Amino acid sequence: SLEEAIRRAEEALRKGQTFEYAGIRVTTQEALEKFRKWAEKQK
């Protein structure tokens, strides 16, 4: 689910890792916010 993907992205960010979902790379807090906004639109 998208909620699960967001949780995994947050977890990866805390560990300093890269999270990738549907071709979207989350490597920074800013990218995480963009990913969250994108995920909201997918619902």
Results as ranks from 00 to 15, higher is better:
K43A: 13
F19V: 02
R36T: 06
Y21V: 04
E4I: 09
A5Y: 09
A9Y: 02
L32K: 00
K43T: 13
K15N: 15
R8G: 08
Q29H: 12
Q17W: 10
K34W: 15
E40F: 07
G23M: 03
E30N: 07
E40L: 09
F19H: 02
Q17T: 10
Q17P: 02
R25S: 12
I24T: 04
K15D: 11
S1D: 14
T28I: 03
Y21T: 02
Q17M: 13
G16W: 03
R14E: 11
A22H: 13
E3G: 08
I24F: 15
E4F: 06
Q29S: 09
I24H: 13
E4V: 09
I6Y: 07
E40P: 01
A9D: 00
L13M: 06
A9V: 03
T18F: 15
A12S: 08
E20G: 03
K37N: 10
A12Q: 06
A22K: 12
Q17V: 11
A39D: 01
A31G: 14
K43F: 15
Q42W: 09
E30A: 13
A5V: 14
F19I: 02
I6M: 08
R7A: 12
I24S: 03
G23S: 05
K37T: 09
I24Y: 11
E10D: 05
V26A: 02
W38F: 04
R36F: 06
E10F: 06
A12V: 04
A22G: 11
E11W: 03
I6V: 14
Y21K: 01
F19P: 01
E4D: 14
K41I: 12
F35Q: 00
K34M: 14
L13E: 01
R14F: 08
K41F: 11
L2E: 02
R25Q: 13
E10Y: 07
R14G: 09
T28S: 13
E40V: 06
E11I: 09
A12P: 00
T18C: 14
K15V: 11
F35I: 03
R36P: 00
F19N: 01
K15H: 12
R7S: 11
R7Q: 12
A31Y: 04
F19D: 01
Y21D: 02
Y21L: 05
S1F: 14
R36H: 04
E11Y: 03
A39E: 01
I24P: 00
S1R: 14
A31I: 06
A31Q: 15
A5T: 08
Q29I: 13
I24V: 06
Q42L: 12
E40A: 09
K43P: 09
E20N: 05
E30W: 07
E20M: 07
R14P: 01
L13N: 01
Q42S: 07
A5W: 12
T28V: 03
A31P: 00
A22L: 12
K41P: 03
V26G: 01
R14L: 12
A12W: 05
R14Q: 12
K37E: 14
K43G: 12
A22E: 11
K37G: 07
G23Y: 04
Q29W: 15
E3H: 09
E20S: 06
K37S: 11
E33P: 00
E33T: 07
F19Q: 00
F35K: 00
K34Y: 15
R25I: 15
E11G: 04
R7L: 12
E40D: 10
I24K: 04
K41H: 12
W38Q: 02
K37A: 15
K43H: 11
E10Q: 07
E3P: 06
E11N: 07
K41W: 13
K37V: 12
R36A: 05
E11P: 00
